[in-house]
Amino acid sequence: MEIKREELIKKLEDTKANGYTYLKKITAVDYINYLNIIYILYNIDTKNEIIFEVKLPSNDLKIDTVINVYKSADFYERELSEMFGIEIIGRKIKRLLLEEWDGAEAPLRKNFIWGNKDYKKL
């Protein structure tokens, strides 16, 4: 189900109140012009899954944190900001998830250049 960026928190809160208390995964897919952020929610009692997709234009990668709705979002959001270069608004912990990495580039974006960068410059 596709939703707008502004209504994300409201929508997740409503869905959680409806019994979808378990957040399975937050992930993203880079479609070059835009990115899809995917929230997979799960209802433990009825065993149903619901998927929300938020479309972000590539030149404006900002999204609200959902950590106040689901605590398990913490690690996933850190991974998201590191791997896709998405700015998560309202996060307290800014540290990257994987160490020894400057975080300047987003490795899971499609425009990431492989291999030795110095070699490419030659």
Partner: peptide, 9 residues
């Protein structure tokens, strides 16, 4: 607790 287990995924 069960609530925390679900909350933390």
């Amino acid at each position: 607790s069960a609530e925390d287990a679900i909350e933390y995924g």
